[in-house]
């Protein structure tokens, strides 16, 4: 480093000459810092059970935040992708079951649900970045993944309803459940995402989110074992 400083000394005056009025600034933003917390205690010598339980508690805590979407930054500060992975795999497995029963036809495949959820999230995230959002890539993925939870719950309810009832009553119940959970998902994700956007462009960011959850909700509604 000293040599670098020595070398840049002859150019110290030069930089003022060649670029007089250009502010040296970038576009990199750190929305919420989380570094100070980590070096307070060491997790090297604690039992594995404790580590796993702590992580599970963190995931469960975030589930609660999605179910009761008040404007807090917990979901944004400590982002993780375990919850989204769990929800995504559960949803894909539940949607897959019907396809295996009925001659491997008609139902969505496991891989397809997986790909729709992850690529859809990535496209929405890129879109919000391009529109000028300040959220980081993985924070946005985390929020979108956790907000699938109402739809996963709706899927579980739908399977139970499909086992017990059939016909128009079953469809009506499923329609109500899926519509409610779709609205819930959209509302929760926009509550988290909207703050990071310029206020005049919220509609543009919300539209792909709406479309994303709509397609997933529609897949759940049209699912039949």
């Amino acid at each position: 480093m000293t040599s670098a400083e020595e070398a840049s000394r002859p150019f110290a005056g030069l930089s003022d000459v060649s670029i007089p009025d250009i502010p040296v600034e970038g576009d990199i933003s750190l929305p919420v810092a989380s570094s100070a917390r980590d070096d307070e205690f060491s997790t090297l010598d604690e039992p594995v059970k404790e580590t796993i339980l702590r992580d599970l508690r963190a995931v469960a805590n975030k589930f609660v935040h999605v179910l009761y979407p008040k404007r807090s930054s917990v979901l944004l500060r400590d982002w993780d992708l375990w919850g989204p992975l769990l929800l995504c795999v559960t949803l894909a497995l539940l949607l897959q079951g019907g396809a295996a029963d009925s001659n491997d036809q008609g139902g969505p495949q496991f891989a397809e649900v997986f790909v729709i959820i992850w690529f859809g999230s990535i496209i929405i995230t890129l879109n919000s970045k391009l529109l000028g959002g300040t959220l980081s890539f993985f924070q946005s993925l985390c929020v979108l993944g956790y907000c699938i939870m109402p739809l996963t719950v709706a899927m579980v309810v739908c399977r139970i309803v499909l086992y017990t009832a059939s016909g128009k009553v079953s469809f009506a119940v499923r329609l109500v459940v899926v519509t409610a959970s779709f609205g819930w998902s959209t509302f929760a994700s926009t509550a988290f995402l909207a703050d990071s956007q310029p206020s005049n462009r919220r509609g543009l960011v919300v539209y792909p989110v709406f479309l994303f959850y709509f397609v997933i909700g529609w897949m759940i509604l049209t699912f039949s074992p």
């Binding site: 040599s3 670098a4 400083e5 020595e6 070398a7 840049s8 150019f11 930089s15 060649s18 670029i19 250009i22 040296v24």
Partner: peptide, 16 residues
């Protein structure tokens, strides 16, 4: 700007 900085550092490496 970044290119200038990089070039300056390269120079520094040579001198070093």
């Amino acid at each position: 700007v970044s290119a200038e900085a990089a070039a300056a550092e390269d120079d520094g490496a040579d001198d070093g």
